[in-house]
């Protein structure tokens, strides 16, 4: 998960819990009057920027996706659904989808379940200082950009100077050394592993904050009843952060379908397109292969996938809201 996406992650709990607040403040919900129009000045800058630079391009993208377009001459030809038809037959498009799915699946394991368990472990520590220190330490990679983290891990995986192979050699399991990013079957997983390293601390921090909000009396009462730490986690913590976990999951998946930076920096989608994801395949199709119409079709696919996930998220958060 990118820092950018992590920031989105932070929004989700808000989105989830915030949905009932989508209406204007009840105290102020009155009839529109002439004076009300002038108050639009408050939201105009935000709406204007979003309309021009977020929504309009979305619509334009749909238009582009039915064109074939020569960047050199600027000529555009209407080709209908041809770009989409080609997309569904393109093995690298599907390879990208599969890689995005791997990204999503592995991120759910580490950044949702793993982070939740880790947060529970940290919050279970007795020393407040250790709790704070560990949370902060785990977070550091999230403050490092994906570009830096990607370059760093490029070198860590590098067959000749990297520490990963050197560590494997040192541990006496030299038979496992390989060019992690240079092999078709390991490249995408090398990138995903880097992304877990970079992002798990952020999610842990989020869960830790959520866990802190669970009233301590619940734990104390359970402890008095002789309930052990494991059962306390499963019977108290887990249900109470369940809503948040589900939402984190949806956001993680959504983020996984927007991956671009780390793949671009670490492999550029190679070797042999084995680590291509939708974002990089869009980039390559458009900016390298001059096929902007096709790239727009891929963009539409990303749009449909992320929008469905967002709708799922909204629907879910409306249905299952746990109050505490």
């Amino acid at each position: 998960m990118t820092v950018a996406n992590s920031a989105r992650a932070a929004a989700v709990p808000v989105a989830g819990a915030g949905v009932p607040n989508l209406s204007s403040p009840p105290a102020r919900a009155g009839r529109k009057d002439a004076r009300g129009w002038r108050n639009l000045i408050w939201v105009l800058p935000a709406i204007g920027l979003l309309a021009a630079f977020v929504y309009l391009p979305l619509v334009q993208n749909l238009g582009f996706s039915v064109l074939e377009w020569d960047i050199y001459s600027g000529g555009q030809t209407f080709v209908g659904a041809e770009n989409y038809a080609r997309m569904f037959e393109d093995p690298i498009f599907w390879k990208s989808v599969v890689n995005n799915l791997w990204y999503a699946g592995i991120s759910i394991v580490f950044q949702v379940f793993g982070a939740l368990a880790l947060a529970a472990l940290i919050e279970g520590l007795r020393s407040d200082r250790w709790r704070r220190t560990l949370r902060a330490v785990y977070f550091i990679p999230s403050a490092v950009s994906l570009t830096v983290a990607g370059l760093l891990f490029y070198f860590i995986y590098e067959p000749q100077m990297g520490i990963l192979n050197a560590a494997l050699d040192g541990a006496g399991i030299g038979q496992f050394t390989q060019a992690w990013l240079g092999q078709e079957n390991t490249a995408i997983f090398g990138i995903i592993a880097m992304s877990q390293w970079q992002g798990f601390g952020y999610c842990t921090l989020l869960f830790a904050v959520a866990l802190q909000r669970i009233p301590t009396e619940l734990y104390e009462a359970a402890a008095i009843d002789g309930v052990g730490p494991f059962r306390r986690f499963f019977s108290i913590s887990l249900p109470l952060v369940r809503e948040m976990s589900s939402l984190m999951m949806i956001v993680t998946v959504s983020g996984a379908f927007q991956v671009f930076n780390e793949v671009m920096v670490m492999t550029g989608g190679g070797p042999n397109n084995s680590s291509q994801v939708l974002g990089t395949w869009l980039y390559r199709s458009g900016f390298v292969k001059n096929d902007f119409g096709y790239a727009s079709a891929i963009a539409t696919a990303i749009f449909v996938i992320t929008l469905s996930l967002a709708v799922l998220q909204l629907w879910y958060s409306r249905r299952r809201r746990v109050e505490w």
């Binding site: 619509v59 238009g63 064109l67 600027g74 555009q76 030809t77």
Partner: peptide, 16 residues
Amino acid sequence: RKCTYPKAAALLVGAS
């Protein structure tokens, strides 16, 4: 530059 596309598509891409 060429602008060769039918009217129907023009609606879609008009803004762009």
